[in-house]
Design a binder for these strands. Structure first.
Lengths: 212, 212
DNA sequence: ATGCAGTGCTGCAAAAATGCACTACTGTAG
DNA sequence: CTACAGTAGTGCATTTTTGCAGCACTGCAT
């Protein structure tokens, strides 16, 4: 396996690169929180991070991508975790365990929580997040295909990966970033249970209440 | 209900607007197919459509959005169809019928087929398509919430809508645009069946065939 | 036909994003 | 120590995207 999940910077070069990326990410989140996304230019972020604007776009595709860097790092991590799950687990089950394993570290990351709050304060950003999610979905889809021995173009891997991403998104969105990790995990479990049951009518649904 | 699904242009003004939008969409798809997305500038599209570049961005958020205009029109249509489904249908079932109903008209649309081929020829575009899909997902989510009497922030509507969008995307992507409508509908049915069953191990999976 | 309100279209300036070529430094081999 | 390959960072030109303000036309009322 060539996948080096360890973040150990082996050389000066690698370390500098990680530092630059980190600096850009941190500066972006900080400035976004301070002034709001609309009042922060790429120039500002770069000045705070000490690099040129061109360099910013060497690391990130769009201005907002720096804020979503967590998701891209998470993607690689999820793929590794999923690959490491025992082969006897059904794909959906393996994905469930994978997410469950990855979430605590996320919640423990102060930067990630900051970002989560940023998304709550600026819903416009959520729309751009889809891009990162799509990347994650494709990566997981490929990993599921590898697990099941199916083609990467087959329907099943895309369905399961898509469902898992939807679950993750929905749970994080509904989760209150001030509350505990357990809350998030509970919602994740509930979502996976709902999907595994074939998404039947809403659990707490009371037929006597028309809802209008 | 104030929703006017009818596309009848009541005044000259409305008609002109639709014409401009149509012209931009058509020009974009044609030029994209002729030269490839990278070799078409907004300026080119606007020249072909006879409007200024600034006007392009009054209609579409990004250069590629003109190509995805079908999805945005489809979104409104799906919401209307879903709202019209009988109340006794379960959400997932109602979404299944909704998509089944909308698809034939799409496939019959020559422009939509062109677009579908464009996506096959230029996979980079698929990445940008997620944006439209996300819009569609949110709209359907709200419609499901209305059907079930749940809050728009509840988990269930997002899960079902997300699953439906994933199904639609997967089916269209796997579908050969040269083949028949029935092929696409069959894949759609198969996907919905898989989701309704809780996404168990791949259906046509033959344990004897390693698939490598 | 005339005047008014609403708004579609446009030009302009600034910011975001991309391709290309160049510099400077890192890591490695001699 | 020196030479070399690889590549992160940069500057520049071009394209994409957005905010703002003005012009022109439509739809409506008089």
């Amino acid at each position: 396996m060539a996948a080096q999940t360890a973040e150990a910077a082996q050389g000066l070069r690698e370390r500098k690169k990680l530092e630059t990326r980190s600096a850009l990410r941190a500066a972006a989140v900080r400035l976004y929180l301070e002034r709001g996304p609309a009042d922060v230019t790429v120039h500002d972020i770069c000045e705070a991070a000490g690099v040129s604007p061109r360099t910013f776009f060497n690391y990130f595709e769009t201005k907002d991508d720096a804020v979503f860097d967590w998701d891209n790092r998470l993607t690689g991590q999820l793929v590794d975790l999923l690959t490491a799950r025992p082969a006897h687990e059904a794909p959906l089950e393996a994905l469930h365990h994978t997410l469950r394993t990855a979430i605590p570290a996320l919640v423990a990351d102060a930067g990630w929580r900051e970002r989560r709050k940023l998304l709550g304060a600026h819903p416009e950003l959520v729309r751009k997040l889809v891009h990162s999610n799509s990347h994650m979905s494709e990566a997981l889809s490929d990993a599921v295909a590898a697990r099941t021995g199916l083609s990467a173009d087959a329907l099943y891997p895309r369905l399961v990966a898509g469902a898992a991403i939807t679950v993750l998104r929905s749970a994080i969105r509904a989760w209150d970033p001030e509350s505990s990790t357990e809350e998030l995990l509970a919602m994740l479990d509930s979502c996976f249970a709902s999907v595994a049951a074939g998404l039947p009518e809403p659990p707490g649904d009371d037929p006597a209440r028309p809802g209008g």
